[in-house]
Design a binder for these strands. Structure first.
Lengths: 147, 147
DNA sequence: GACCCTATGTCAGACTGCTGACATGGATCA
DNA sequence: TGATCCATGTCAGCAGTCTGACATAGGGTC
């Protein structure tokens, strides 16, 4: 009998459990970022810019897994708050290279600490070695999709 | 030097890679369900009812990781399409036990096959044993949150 | 040069999901 | 019994995200 084909319980589906963890992570990040008046997409935008200064709006969108229309609003709001800067005209092509301001750097630092603490808490049941393995396994799945 | 505290690259963050996989899974499910005119929350609702008939709206919401207000719309639309039934009055308390209709069973079966194929494809880089381990690790994280 | 294709930024509209609020049914307890 | 608390279903309003569309900049091809 090939019961491997029939998933008797949702808990036995990798996808369902993945969704559970993702929901938990999302909730933990929301809570951690609330004191800083930041949403998860806004934090993602800052983190991406912190590690890769000069990214365009479209590149930020791909990195944060949203459309460039959505990221456009995120960037604009962060720009109004003075956390990042964008040139009025493109130095080349149409892409506008975005960078963090001093305030942006400071806010990102605080947010990064809070988020990392929440993440550490969520994955605390796993050892360092297990976390490394988990990350590697997930990365393998992503890599095969990108093909 | 404790560089374990500083994540030099986003790719080294478990949370970020998890988000990547979740986004890929979501996209794959959307594509798999599009021919059936089903959204992911709608599919989740059907799947939950298939495995646990008689769930209330609030219970479905918790199982699908959305608010009961959002699930209410999902249920209502599926009810209009004749895929599930709900009594007009609660047999006890206020909870309305929901169940799949014959059409709902049929649609769920088709959707389930499509989704499972997409899921299988996504996790194909991992062996059966690796997938089992991945699921166990993720489940451990969820369990600790529920505490 | 003319043409086509791609990528980018932006606008408008629709949809989805959330928060806040309220009323109801049931359980618990003084 | 009456009061309190919790869970549920539902309504209204709001914010976020998506799809569709358009104009523009650059590279490639004939």
């Amino acid at each position: 009998m090939d019961q491997a084909e029939t998933v008797g319980d949702l808990e036995l589906s990798v996808g369902y459990v993945l969704k559970q963890v993702h929901a938990s992570l999302r909730a933990a990040m929301d809570e951690a970022l609330r004191p800083l008046e930041l949403t998860v997409p806004q934090y993602a935008c800052l983190e991406l810019l912190g590690q890769h200064p000069g990214l365009s709006n479209s590149e930020l969108a791909r990195g944060a897994f949203v459309t460039r229309q959505s990221m456009n609003l995120v960037v604009r709001r962060l720009q109004e708050r003075g956390l990042l800067t964008r040139p009025d005209q493109a130095p080349e092509g149409r892409a506008l290279p975005t960078e963090l301001t001093q305030d942006g750097q400071t806010t990102l630092c605080q947010a990064s600490v809070a988020v990392r603490a929440a993440e550490k808490q969520l994955f605390s049941p796993l050892s360092q070695e297990q976390q490394r393995r988990l990350r590697a396994d997930l990365a393998a799945c992503v890599a095969s999709v990108a093909d």
